[in-house]
Amino acid sequence: MTDLSYSPASSGSSATKIALRWGLYIMLGLFALFYLMPLFVMVTTSFKSLEEIRTGDLISLPREVTLDAWRTAWSGACTGIQCEGVRPFFWNSVLIAIPAVMISTLIGALNGYVVAQWRFKGANLFFALMLFGCFIPFQVVLLPMARMLGLMGLAGTIPGLIFVHVIYGLGFTTLFFRNYYVSIPAELTKAAKVDGAGFFRIFWSIFLPLSLPIIVVTVIWQFTQIWNDFLFGISFSQAGTQPVTVALNNIVNSTTGVKAYNVDMAAAIIAALPTLFVYVVAGKYFVRGLTAGSVKG
C-alpha cells in the first residue's frame, strides 16, 4: 500500500500523463517516417518519368503518374543481352521458392516430431548438429555444393536450386518444429500408441493439426529466406534459371548510359512484393506462432 504514493507516475497530474502519451506517439511516428522514407522514395520514383526524375526533387510526389517504368521493369528491361524485364525471373523465383518452402517445411516438421517425441539414441547430438547447420556461413559451402550439384547433374537447374534451399533450410525448420513439439506432452504420443496409431498416423492425425501456428512461422521464414536469396541464386544458376534477385541486380548494374531509376525502383518493388504480401497476410500468425511455445494453454 505504501509504495503507491512512492510511484512517480501516479503522483503526476493527468495533464502530464497525456503529454507523455503524446510524446510517445510523436516519437513512434517519427521512427515510422524514418523507416518508411526509402519506401516512399521508391514508390514515388517508380511512378515518375525519367525526365521528371532528372529535373525534379527526390522526395516530391510525381507531377504526372506514369506506369511506363513498371511496364518496362516487368517485361522490357534489359538484364544483360536479354530484354524481357524481371518477368521470367520472377517466375523462376516462384518455381524455386514454393516447392523449396513446402519440402523444407514438411521435412522440418517430421524432423522436429522425431527429435521431440521419438527420442532415440543420439537424438540430442543429431539436433545439435542440425542447429550447427543454421550457423554455417553460406559462403563456406558454395564450392562443395557446386561440386555436388555437378555430380548430381543438377548444376544450373531449378531443381538444383530447390535442393540447395531445402538442405540449408532444414536446420531452421527442424529447430522451429522441434521447439514447438517439445512443449506437447509426451503422454499424447503414448495415448495414440496405445490406441494403435503408428509413427505417421500420429504425426498426421495429431501433430500436424496442432501445428498451424508453427507452420505459418516456418513458411514465412523460409519463403523470405529463399525468395530474397542472392548468393545461391547467382552461384548455382545459369541463363534462364536465375531468380528475381539476380535479375534485379543485372537490371540495375547492366544499364548503359542514363540510369533508369524509375525502372530500377519498380523492379525492386516487384521483387519485394511477394515477401511483403506473405507478411501482411500471415503476419499476425507469425508473432502468435513465435510466442506459442512459451505460453501455457
Binding site: 506432452p185 503422454e187 499424447l188 503414448k190 495415448a191 495414440a192 496405445v194 492425425s205 495429431i206 493439426p209 496442432l210
Partner: peptide, 13 residues
C-alpha cells in the same frame, strides 16, 4: 490394453 493418463492426453484438435 487401454490406458488413462494423468494429463488425460486427449487429442486437442
Amino acid at each position: 490394453i487401454a490406458m488413462v493418463f494423468q494429463s488425460y492426453a486427449l487429442y486437442p484438435t
